[in-house]
């Protein structure tokens, strides 16, 4: 009796799988559009801008999720293997990407390493701090390289060009349109860069303190800010009491009035530091990912960076022009 029930259930499930698989295949047949799978939000946003309405772009990471600990699900691997183009950031950000790609037939699939040609910089959370012997923190599994390359807008431009090359190679028929979209995007990034340069040119302080994991190194370097984070890149690492106290002393001695925290992540530690030092907390987007509401509203990378600029100007007491 029990066995026959099991058989019936298994049969139903098997049929369902076959039918669903069939549906999926038919879907694909109907839309001959290029299928593009991206990992993180900046890639997703760049790719969908370049794609226009000629390709379908999806993002692997569910909205809101912190990407450092992301592991792809079987369904994600199927999505990648059925796509024409797969775009990832770099091997520091998505160490799992190379492993997956090994198991996928790459005859049809074109893979873009968006960070190719970018000059990587070492992440150094605690440089310039009095007790900096915790710098081994910053190395960890990321090999010491800071993977958040999109936060330098010149790098973002390199990424756009890499993505464009992928599109052109996968779907040469629509190449002119892709190129046109990419050119517009590059112009917007250049404009954003210009606004950052001007907006952050005359500020009350150039010390940019972040009560979380090392994220904004590229951005700070580009605009000449002195960036310190509470902890290194690895999201598993926890700060020591000594590091917390050192950060508090630094906030006090630098005279900043705002401490930055990253959107999406719990601001507990940042708030503790801010309360201790008597400053306020402002949020910045690391833009690895996007909250669900923003995602559904179609908010883009440049929108996030504009929000960041506002908060940076407020936090660093910059005169706006």
């Amino acid at each position: 009796m029990k066995r026959s029930m099991l058989f019936v259930v298994m049969s139903i499930m098997a049929i369902a799988v076959i039918v669903l698989a069939g549906c999926k295949r038919r879907d694909q047949g109907a839309s001959a559009k290029l299928q593009v799978v991206t990992t993180l939000f900046p890639l997703y946003d760049f790719a969908r801008t370049i794609a226009g309405d000629q390709a379908e772009v999806t993002m692997l990471l569910p909205p809101g999720m912190e990407p450092h600990g992301f592991e792809p699900k079987p369904n994600d691997i199927i999505r990648i293997s059925q796509a024409g183009l797969f775009i990832y950031t770099n091997r520091y950000m998505e160490p799992w990407a190379e492993t997956i790609l090994k198991g996928i037939d790459r005859q049809r699939l074109k893979v873009v390493d968006a960070g190719q040609g970018v000059r990587y910089v070492k992440a150094s959370a605690e440089e310039g701090l009095e007790d900096g012997h915790g710098s081994h923190d910053a190395e960890g599994n990321a090999g010491g390289m800071d993977p958040h390359i999109w936060l330098d807008f010149a790098n973002a431009g390199v990424m756009v060009n890499n993505i464009l090359a992928g599109f052109v190679a996968s779907d040469p028929a629509h190449a002119p349109m892709y190129r046109a979209n990419a050119t517009t995007l590059l112009a917007r990034l250049a404009d954003l860069d210009q606004r950052y340069r001007e907006g952050l040119s005359s500020c009350g302080t150039r010390i940019f303190l972040h009560g979380g994991h090392y994220t904004f190194g590229y951005l700070a370097r580009r605009y000449g800010l002195e960036y310190h984070s509470l902890s290194g890149i690895s999201s598993e690492s926890e700060p020591s009491a000594a590091r917390m106290a050192a950060m508090v002393r630094e906030i006090r001695s630098s005279g900043v009035r705002y401490l930055f925290a990253e959107e999406l992540l719990s601001p507990r530690l940042t708030e503790t530091l801010a309360n201790e030092a008597g400053v306020s907390v402002l949020k910045l987007y690391g833009a690895h990912n996007l909250g669900k509401d923003d995602f559904e509203r179609g908010v883009g990378f440049i929108d996030l960076m504009e929000r960041n600029l506002k908060n940076l100007q407020k936090g660093l007491a910059c005169r706006s022009k």
Partner: peptide, 24 residues
């Protein structure tokens, strides 16, 4: 739930666990 729900506005794990150094 995390995969069916299609994501959240914040990172679940970071909100789940406190840290003894960040007690309000």
């Amino acid at each position: 739930l995390a995969s069916v729900g299609g994501g959240y506005n914040v990172d679940l794990l970071s909100y789940l666990f406190g840290n003894i150094l960040s007690i309000s």
